[in-house]
Nucleic acid binder design. Structure first.
Lengths: 233, 233
DNA sequence: TGCAAAAATGCACGTCGTGCAAAATTAAGG
DNA sequence: CCTTAATTTTGCACGACGTGCATTTTTGCA
């Protein structure tokens, strides 16, 4: 089994490291084979053989063959949430979210060749693209909860002192509801920024600049957001 | 084969009507069986038998067994886009979008029992929920393009005369990019409103009020949006 | 009614995905 | 170094999924 650059949270035991390596090897083999022959023509047997494990073992790591094409990094979502929660308290929720995403995307860009193949595979079969979008969206929901937790915990009501921010003539009830919705809106904007910039990056085949594009898109979308409502309490 | 209330755009030929009826019968049978026995325990054979067709015919209508659980209304997305395009020119993009969604959701609510079962099935198997989210998101992308087309075609730059709308000190270049992004942001907000209100509606088991909840969530989320940027030309 | 197009069906076949039990590997001590 | 318990890998069998192809049935129309 080919040793891979073990990324992510450096695990402790040898067992866990080997499991992560096997999982990564399977995912990478799946993507490379799919990019070459087309996802539909790649059997689980071929993926397993390329990763050096048995077919049965493949299904110990992935519930479905398609998962190997879609879920390249299983715990990226968890890392994102943790990064949002661990961000310095001085950052507004929006800034914390942006920094967390920039860090995650920067890490992913270190393997941009694999990610380009990944995008190519998804682009080639709409079926897989839908699965990927769904997984992305499920992560987004959990991310919204992490944002909400951060807002509840953190003392600062974000960028409350922005000059353009209207205090809002809403009642306390309205502000409470808006406060419930704000994390979702934030997560939706962030997700839209990611998808849009990935799409742009994939369309133009220029190498670098991806993070710059993301930052710009994020800023433009975020310009449409008001400061979060002040808590009614 | 059980005759179903043929909904949607009343098709012309008898052939198309029968095809839609068969498709609806299969989807409904799938959802009802899944709600009763659990989606994983429902075979294609059972669904086909319940709808009165052969197993092979099932696969003439759905690429996958799971599609029958997920895609209850195949052309809802197309209707949405058409409604957005056909909305009176006096409406802003935001208003046109809201009216289109309200109309669509109102129609769906006429079969709220089936939709409740549908939500229950998705809720029971995260696997299917992800698929549904992905399909929803793919529709959202196409919806954004319809919105963009409407903005390009329609004469009015939307609610440009809103008092709170800042003209924005951005350059023409920035406004052009923001204009490209605005439809996506709008679609994202609308999608978030739908998912949030559906979630709320499913959590509380109260009967009516769904459309009211949606309108409120939509308004609260939209409050975070600025007027669309004026075209640079 | 007769004819052509479209849809439904049956059948065969390869692949997927799972339960179960046996074999191999690992961590921890004596 | 060797033993032992826990974890992981693997093989095997089996039901279900999904597809290609030829055939039969149904529909639309003259």
């Amino acid at each position: 089994m080919q040793i891979m650059s073990e990324k992510g949270a450096a695990g402790g035991g040898l067992r866990e490291r080997k499991k992560r390596a096997t999982r990564a090897a399977l995912a990478e083999a799946a993507v490379r084979l799919a990019a070459e022959h087309g996802a539909e023509k790649v059997t689980v047997e071929a993926i397993s053989a390329a990763a050096g494990v048995s077919v049965r073992t493949f299904f110990n790591y992935f519930d479905t063959r398609d998962d190997a094409f879609v879920v390249i990094d299983a715990d990226a979502g968890a890392r994102m949430r943790q990064a949002v929660l661990d961000a310095p308290a001085a950052l507004s929720p929006l800034e914390a979210l942006r920094e967390a995403m920039v860090a995650e995307l920067a890490e992913a860009e270190q393997q941009h060749e694999l990610w380009r193949l990944h995008a190519q595979v998804l682009h080639a079969s709409p079926h897989l693209l839908v699965r990927s979008l769904g997984a992305h969206m499920a992560d987004e929901t959990e991310l919204a909860e992490a944002i909400a937790a951060r807002i509840r915990a953190g003392g600062r009501p974000a960028t409350a002192s922005v000059p353009g921010a209207v205090p809002g003539p809403g009642s306390d009830e309205e502000r409470r509801k808006a406060l419930d919705l704000y994390p979702r809106l934030l997560a939706a904007v962030a997700g839209t920024a990611v998808r849009t910039s990935v799409e742009h990056w994939y369309a133009r085949q220029e190498e670098g600049a991806f993070l710059d594009v993301f930052q710009e898109v994020f800023a433009l979308l975020a310009a449409g957001l008001p400061a979060p409502p002040a808590p009614p309490a």
